[in-house]
Design a protein around this nucleic acid. Structure first.
Lengths: 400, 400
DNA sequence: TTTGTTTTATTCGTACTGTGAATAAACTAC
DNA sequence: GTAGTTTATTCACAGTACGAATAAAACAAA
């Protein structure tokens, strides 16, 4: 939250690089980050001293076909413990156990719907689910929990002001879980977490401005400036999916009408597909991947009513991206999440809507990346953020 | 453009404070900026050495009712020269001559329409206008020119990709004028310039995130993070006015339909008011302030058709602010420009549209400021930016 | 085995920035 | 005058980063 000191930021960049790239020798770190060998030596010396990093045993080297002094790679100490990342979707909870080096040790998803629960019960269930997962994954050293969900998430105070997946408003979820689990709990908006995870895997996206539109269960936006998440006044990202694009459009889970989400989200497409067949409108649950594949398959086979649905959705996506381009002028636009499964169906109307909304000079600025990512990548993002927080805590602990 | 070194940023903050507050003693600078007296002494010593600042003669002090060593205030050296700020509107050019301390020495506006001119002629006319103004204002020491206009302005290269006020596309205006005037020319999007000027006058707006929506000739957005203009990938701010909010709304100057501007800008309100009276639709010129006052007056008197116009405009304004809140989550929203003259008429529908689009928690984040500002404030913003650039150039010159 | 060659890592001296504390300066009050 | 008060400068020091020199650890060649 508070601005990082020069040292802290160098330290963070160093540890970030090690998590992304795996073990690196000091020279390599210097090349990656543009630091002098002297600086890298000094930084790594204190990180090793603090027990965060370890130096590779020179014995276990790669084949002996290289000249010169061999590299000694640095890696994260196992003793640092691990972090559990959690995503709570509409009727599913994704869990991931990650060690301090950023390697996934275990992952699982649990079918569970939280919306019908009271605040206390909800937190009990969630805490229990996390604890069970950690135990059954054989983790004895969980240092923190990172939790992402849709909606307005106050990342600083760990309060969910409103979320379509929870029944209650202004829920102090972080403190509630923290109490139950005896560990710090860090909250994040889900689209922000996804944006961060995707940027960790693509260096291009970590330079300039990247707007990451996640389409799936809902529609969210994560915005990165130079690889760091943009933070608004209170809530991390923005619930961009609830921007109202059509004054009298279809019903949205937020209570409004014509939101971006009400056209593009899985639940919306599924609901509208059911309505075409005159079947009873389903509840607003997250439809299964099979159900969605089915709809996409029928549309690809030429079902005209379904094609219309995707046409309208693509148009809304084009308008949404147009707004982002005109407001933020990003260098990169990423469209990600399960919704990309139908990108071929969305594309024609997406592109024509985008064209009709922006001048060519502006459109040419942003590279549009379509990244097929599933929701479980999301837990990776929130874990990475939690790990970085832990790094910082460790540093400040030693300093005090 | 390139990130400032620690020293450069301290230096900039110091000079910014002096321009905003007028002459300050070293202690006062320290208090304003949270710097130690030692640091301020060191910084000011080199600024005085470089001839940028001067120390007040201890003789001309204020009344002798204070104890202790008297303050010696620091001020900008007169010898540093001045800067001309220019805004090109639809049929008006605003000019302002400012000295290095940020004080306005002269200002003027010229009625002139540039849209009908070819590129070369346009630049000739503009250069001539600026030169004449500078000469007639008795400025012999103009060091730079800052130029703001509506549209997609590439601030780095000084190219106007598209502007409703110019006839040509991708016009290299900065280099063209620079050649003709023999001085560096800095370009800026007009809403960005206005946002910067307004933030210079209100300290609150310089902390956190401030989205400044300028309504007048057109509709523009300037976005500030911690008092500094947000820069997109290429163009400074964003031509937010051309976000399309209604799929089949009124015609906009950009060629599209249903843009924010097509409801809110002066030309749009004026045009639609004429249409009500079945008078021939006027050309898309900037109507005079009198004509606009007339329309507002008739609406206040109860003309139902005009009230409808303002109702629709207010609704669009509410939607626009809603989008900003949901996308950027700013701490402050500023609505400024001549369009605020009708804020009383816009307000009811503005507020209901905003309410229907955002959840209360989110709406509560942003303070909405209505700042009645005319377009001539805009030249102040662009001049301030140009002065800061000059400061930096001076510093880098000395360093090399 | 010894002596280079090559690459990696550390150490050392230096430069820059920013700070607290001590000191100097410049005035008023009595 | 002298004491008191506020402002400005100086000085010693700490933190950070860097280039250059040096040390370390391997392989290659004689």
């Amino acid at each position: 939250m508070l601005p990082l000191s020069s040292r802290e930021s160098a330290r963070r960049r160093l540890l970030d690089a090690l998590r992304r790239e795996g073990p690196l020798a000091r020279v390599e770190i210097g090349q990656h980050l543009g630091m002098s060998p002297a600086t890298v030596s000094e930084l790594t010396a204190s990180l090793i001293d603090e027990g965060i990093l370890m130096a590779e045993d020179s014995a276990d080297q790669s084949p002996g076909l290289m000249r010169g002094r061999p590299k000694t790679r640095l890696y994260f100490a196992e003793t640092l413990g691990s972090v559990v990342g959690v995503w709570t979707g509409f009727n599913r909870i994704e869990l991931r156990l990650v060690d301090s080096a950023g390697r996934t040790r275990a992952s699982r998803h649990v079918e569970r719907r939280l919306r019908n629960l009271e605040a206390e019960e909800l937190m009990d269930v969630l805490a229990q689910t996390i604890a069970t997962f950690a135990e059954e994954s054989g983790a004895r050293d969980v240092k923190a929990v990172g939790l992402a969900c849709q909606g307005y998430v106050d990342t600083r105070d760990g309060i969910v002001a409103w979320s379509p997946v929870l029944g209650t408003r202004d829920l102090p979820l972080a403190s509630g879980l923290s109490q139950r689990l005896g560990k710090p709990v860090l909250m994040e908006n889900d689209a922000s977490a996804m944006a961060f995870a995707i940027a960790q895997r693509n260096a291009d996206l970590r330079s300039g401005r990247t707007a990451c539109l996640m389409v799936g269960d809902g529609v969210g936006l994560g915005f990165l400036i130079q690889g760091e998440l943009y933070r608004g006044a209170r809530f991390g990202g923005s619930e961009f999916g609830h921007v109202r694009l059509r004054r009298s459009g279809p019903q949205c889970r937020c209570g409004g009408r014509g939101c971006i989400e009400a056209y593009l989200a899985d639940y919306a497409l599924h609901r509208d597909a059911q309505l075409i067949d005159h079947r009873p409108a389903p509840t607003l649950l997250l439809p299964s991947e099979e159900a969605m594949s089915d709809i996409v398959g029928q549309a690809r086979a030429g079902d005209p009513a379904l094609l219309n649905l995707f046409h309208a959705a693509g148009e809304v996506l084009g308008d949404a991206v147009g707004i982002l381009i005109q407001t933020l002028e990003p260098d990169h636009i990423v469209i990600c999440g399960p919704g990309t499964r139908a990108m071929d169906l969305l594309r024609p109307s997406f592109e024509s809507a985008l064209e009709s909304q922006t001048i060519p000079e502006l459109r040419a600025l942003a590279t549009i990346h379509v990244v097929e990512s599933s929701m479980d990548l999301l837990t990776e993002g929130v874990v990475m953020q939690a790990l970085r927080d832990l790094d910082l805590d460790l540093a400040r602990l030693k300093a005090a």
